[in-house]
Design a binder for these strands. Structure first.
Lengths: 136, 136
DNA sequence: TATATACTCTATAAATAAAGTAGATTATTA
DNA sequence: TAATAATCTACTTTATTTATAGAGTATATA
């Protein structure tokens, strides 16, 4: 399941997307409108900024803003960043690979090959859906 | 990601499947062969039994055994039982539905409809793969 | 340049979930 | 009745998630 943090990230990003063009948006404004703890949201937005998904400006008139068009922000990217791997097992993860150590040989592991199929079918969707698809 | 417990469940069930026909298998035997804490495995097997996936017998000559053919045990069933929902959000779960409360209207929620697609594509695979597919 | 503003950073606390453990109990076999 | 092996309830430990605190830094503008 997606963590609460991930759902907050989606919520904050769609807020930014629908309020684009009027300059940066205050963390506080997003927090109030989307019912997210301001301090927690600070962490999330910072993470999104470091990943190049949004930009920020300090001081008066500052705030957060999207750095790319919503249609260029894949849901898979947001999920990976905030939630973690999309795969169900680490030995199949494209971005967070780890040997699982449960099987003798990864290449011939039956569970692994099924989990690759599941991963691919999820990615097929999540790589082709973007922030733009979340807007009304 | 699948929990360690879920991976243990797969491991124990494949052990049972490959040792079928010689009568019940001791928890201890599975635990030793599959490197699982015996006490933890007890909990897991009990859960699998209560869900009708395997049966057990007490006393001498007792142990655990599969109650159905491996080909009749869907991976989706095992995952749901031990790991929880297959969906990424509760408002889309077929077996663990809960309103997520994050959106105003569930029916028109864009994220929800994407998450339904992800769920369906995962189920397409996990409902059609069984314990038999995990055996060598 | 002083001041208010608003994001940034590091650290920690609290809550929840996952993993693992203990020991008494019950059913079965021989 | 003695030995065996699953069952049940409860608890402990560890890890993760969620949330909070407060000092620090950059910016705008008067």
């Amino acid at each position: 399941m997606l963590s609460q943090k991930t759902k907050y990230a989606f919520s904050a990003l769609t807020y930014l997307a629908t309020h684009a063009g009027n300059g940066p948006v205050l963390i506080e404004e997003i927090a109030e409108n989307r019912k997210i703890s301001k301090k927690f949201l600070e962490n999330i937005l910072l993470e999104l900024r470091k990943a190049g998904i949004c930009g920020s400006k300090k001081g008066k008139g500052g705030g957060y803003y999207l750095i790319k068009a919503p249609a260029d922000i894949q849901l898979s990217k947001i999920i990976r960043l905030v939630n973690g791997p999309i795969s169900l097992v680490p030995c199949v993860s494209l971005h967070y690979y780890e040997p699982c150590g449960d099987c003798a040989d990864e290449k011939s592991c039956k569970l692994r090959s099924i989990m690759m199929d599941v991963r691919d079918s999820a990615l097929q969707i999540l790589e082709n859906r973007t922030l733009a698809d979340l807007l009304d």
